[in-house]
Write a protein that binds this DNA or RNA. Structure first.
Lengths: 115, 115
DNA sequence: TATATACTTAGGTATATGGCTAACTATTCT
DNA sequence: AGAATAGTTAGCCATATACCTAAGTATATA
């Protein structure tokens, strides 16, 4: 495993679950094993592992197994892509507001001319 | 309708679908009616309407109906919240790397002392 | 070598999601 | 009034998601 084509779909899907977001919040503080990650959650281990799988398939995290311990760590690139998409939309939205604003101001000026 | 308690769950869930992201990309350019929004999509109208419903319930957009036309527009606050969460995680991740870095540098210095 | 630890796999269930068609309502145009 | 337009509601279906228990594998520890 290592060849995932992660998409914004998968990224946002992975982020849509509170358990998975809490895991990420833990992992940005540093790597952790499956059982360390699972500990705060009142959930059967196989259910929890499902979440880790989703996170890894979305490429938000990666893991390696050494001995019997699997350690997870954050990979920032997909979070960056998601942030970028959102920032771009917010930016475009604000630009449009600015344009609208100056258009309305111009209109107001023309109105004054006619008085 | 107007009393939704939107959460990051709902926001990311809404963003996880390509149709809904394309709708948002359209709406940051300015408001649009249901049929304008639906036009680029090869999808039955009721299916498409479902997506608009998800977007509105996640509070990423809002709509008003005038006559027989319902017009949608972007509401930026939830996008900002999502961006904020992501940026915070990325920021925490980088801080941790920096700390690790200076720790390792210190370790290297101490090693030199012992030579 | 026996036991404990740390995951893993298999398989089952309930609900959610994303699509459809058909039929209906409310406005607007002729 | 009758027809067209714009959106809505109801109901069906297939697949995905999120949880579970039970049982299995591989690696350490006593």
């Amino acid at each position: 495993m290592a060849n995932y084509s992660a998409t914004l779909d998968h990224t946002f899907q992975a982020l849509a679950d509170p358990t998975r977001r809490r895991v990420l919040e833990r992992l940005v503080q540093g790597p952790a094993s499956v059982s360390e990650l699972a500990e705060p959650f009142d959930m059967a281990l196989p259910s929890f592992l499902q979440h880790l799988k989703v996170l890894e398939q979305s490429a938000l995290v990666r893991s390696e197994k050494v001995g019997r311990v699997r350690t997870f760590h954050v990979v920032p690139s997909e979070m960056k892509r998601a942030t970028h998409w959102l920032s771009l939309q917010l930016d475009l939205w604000e630009r449009r507001l600015d344009q609208l604003d100056s258009y309305l101001q111009q209109l107001a000026l023309q109105e004054n001319d006619h008085e």
